[in-house]
Amino acid sequence: MTLPATSRQTRTFEDRADALAHFFLRAGEAPRLLAYDDTVGCPLDQALGAIEWTAAVGILAQDDLIHAARLGSDASAAVVERKDGDQRVFIYFGPRMDAPPADPYEGTLLYDEPGVRAYIFAQRVHAIAHFLRATLGLGTVVSMLGRRAPELRHIRRWLQAVFTEPPGENSSTQMLAGWFATGGSGVLFLPRQPDAPYTYCEVGIDL
C-alpha cells in the first residue's frame, strides 16, 4: 500500500492575536491541544521519543484520546480517555508523587509500577484536576475549546511529519497550540526570542 504524499505549509506572524486567529481558523472543528501556560508552551523536543516509548511498552494505546499531557526531559504525564466495557473512563499516567495529594480520593489506583503510577477516574474534571496538581501545569497542554480530544495515532503521525524538517532560526519547539485530525495537523510555535515571530506549521495529506 502506497502512503499518500504529505503537503506542508509554514507561516510566520509578528502579532500573537493574528497567529492565534489563523490557528483557530485552520483548525475548524478539529480536536486541539492548547498550552496551559501560553507564555511557556509545551516543549516538543522529547515528544516523539516519549510517545514511541509509552506506545512500545503498552502504557498508551493508539486509539487513546489525549486530554492533557506533559512531555518533559525528566518526567512525563498524561490524561487519556479510553473505552472500558460500555463506558468511557479517564486515566492519569505519571510519576509517583511523594508529597500530598499523592492519592486522589476521586480516583482508583489502576497500577503502580517502577517510574509510573496510574489512576482511573469516572469524570474528566477529576482526572484533569489531579494532572494539574501533579504537574503544576508546567509545560503542559490540555484539550480545550473542542468537541473531543485528539487521538494519539493522529498526534504521533503528524508530529513526525512536522519534524521531518528542522525548525527555522527564529522558530522554537515550544508548542502554543496544535490541532490533530485524520487528514492533517497544524501546530503553532512560540517565538524563540521575544522579538521573533510566531511560527505556524501545517501538514496534511496531499490529495
Rank of each mutant, 00 (worst) to 15 (best):
T2S: 12
P4D: 05
T6S: 02
T6C: 04
S7A: 13
R8I: 09
Q9C: 03
T10M: 10
T10Q: 15
T10V: 15
R11M: 09
F13N: 06
F13D: 02
F13I: 05
E14L: 08
E14V: 07
D15R: 13
R16H: 09
A17Q: 11
A19S: 07
A19K: 05
F23A: 07
F24K: 10
F24E: 09
L25Q: 14
R26W: 14
A27D: 04
P31M: 05
R32E: 08
R32H: 09
L33M: 09
L34M: 11
A35Q: 05
D37E: 07
L44A: 11
D45M: 01
Q46H: 11
A50G: 01
A50W: 01
I51W: 11
E52A: 13
T54V: 04
A55S: 12
V57L: 07
I59P: 00
L60N: 02
L60H: 10
I66T: 07
I66G: 08
A68I: 05
A69S: 13
L71W: 13
L71Q: 08
G72H: 06
S73F: 08
D74E: 13
A77K: 01
A77N: 04
A77F: 08
A78T: 12
E81L: 11
E81A: 15
D86M: 12
Q87T: 15
V89W: 01
Y92C: 11
G94N: 08
M97E: 15
P100L: 14
P101T: 13
A102H: 14
Y105F: 10
G107L: 10
T108E: 14
D112R: 09
E113N: 04
G115E: 09
Y119W: 15
I120R: 15
Q123D: 14
V125W: 04
A127F: 05
H130G: 01
R133W: 13
R133D: 12
A134T: 04
L136N: 08
G137R: 02
G139A: 03
T140F: 02
V142I: 15
S143Y: 05
M144N: 08
R147Q: 14
R147C: 06
A149M: 05
A149L: 04
P150D: 03
E151V: 11
E151D: 03
R153C: 12
R153L: 15
R156T: 09
R156C: 05
W158L: 08
W158K: 03
Q160Y: 02
A161I: 00
V162P: 04
T164P: 00
P166R: 10
G168R: 02
E169P: 03
E169F: 07
E169Q: 13
N170V: 12
A177R: 03
G178L: 00
G178K: 01
W179I: 01
W179A: 13
F180T: 05
A181V: 05
A181T: 09
G183P: 02
G186P: 04
L188M: 05
L188V: 00
L188I: 03
F189T: 01
F189Q: 01
F189K: 01
P191H: 07
Q193T: 07
P194Q: 07
D195Y: 03
Y198V: 02
T199P: 01
Y200A: 02
C201M: 12
C201R: 15
V203F: 06
D206H: 13
D206M: 09
